[in-house]
Nucleic acid binder design. Sequence first.
DNA 1: CACTGTAACGGCAGTCATTGCAGATTTGCA
DNA 2: TGCAAATCTGCAATGACTGCCGTTACAGTG
Lengths: 197, 197
Amino acid sequence: MLPRMTLRERKRARTRQALVDAATELFERQGYDETTIADITAKAEVGARTFFSYFASKEELLFPESDERVQATLAAIADRGADEGPAEVLLRALSGASERSDDMVSPLAALRLRLVQTVPAVRGKGLQLQLDAQREIARHLADAFPELDYVRASALTGAFIGAITAVLYALLEEGDPAVLKTAVQTAAEVALEPWRR
Amino acid sequence: MLPRMTLRERKRARTRQALVDAATELFERQGYDETTIADITAKAEVGARTFFSYFASKEELLFPESDERVQATLAAIADRGADEGPAEVLLRALSGASERSDDMVSPLAALRLRLVQTVPAVRGKGLQLQLDAQREIARHLADAFPELDYVRASALTGAFIGAITAVLYALLEEGDPAVLKTAVQTAAEVALEPWRR
DNA sequence: CACTGTAACGGCAGTCATTGCAGATTTGCA
DNA sequence: TGCAAATCTGCAATGACTGCCGTTACAGTG
């Protein structure tokens, strides 16, 4: 066996996952507001106080790896080809992301999307993360493309994320992941069309 | 004297304003988290329970007339000239809004802008309202301009608001209202440039 | 002006998220 | 094996928010 992680770390990861799983199931079954931290920790078999050593708040549990997509996008910016414009880079990042991860269609993601629609606190948290991501991407875009100042970069990023969000919300009901991915990609392309040359 | 409002309504408006004023001052002095609802209601001389018959939450107090700007924008869309494209309409709405109201420079607005930067709960609420506004504007744009589908409209609106937000955040320190207004207007124009035929 | 229905007030008790504190427990490492 | 650091947890407290409900003030009517 390869203890790539120490026992401590493995244990911690297991508990974390147990919390996420317990919460996910309870949220599905009884709803977000109706599920208390105590319910979650009871089901995950840890003390109630422990919850807060894993997540700073109840909402945070719904956004675990939120950083990954941002990192992937930043990587796409860094790896840009000599002939790519900013819009092309974003589109490439998007198509890469939807191939690589199931993040937009995982069960947690589906639950999250639903809760973002219906629970104010969750929506607030989600938007907060989204705006942070948006700003970071804009900053990197502005750095990478001399012809793009920060305002233009912000506008471009806003258009990109705005369009994706619009489609995601509009197609909430869509069950088929492939259809959804295609729709999102197409939407982003259409939306950024004015920015290409 | 013209009792355009009944005594009851005037009284209610006065109490509401008293709450806003009390909160504003306390937030300034001791900070948002350090100010409790009890503090606010004590200073405004009403019962603590009464607070919630005026505002659904502590954050909501910071966003009173948030609807007005949206309404003004929707009106601008409705009043569009035959030769105006969607980007022109948004820019006209923006310049009209900044002339008409001091909303971006009122003391409450300044406080709000600061708190949105620093207090997560406030930021969440603000973003929530912003997204709602964004969606409503996009919907109306799509309705008003046949050549604009909902996705494109969302992208355009996202670019518009994204650019404005970027500048507002970047120029947080700017003291002169005139400078700020000009910067915002210019930024929006620059950002929407790719959309103007 | 008296009368009555309704809106507004404000106290009380309860739920729940979140936090600081402090005493166990467990794990990493020498 | 033995100690220091990291974790886990129970306890108590704070503060937002809600439901319940008796009291008071105001509006509209005759």
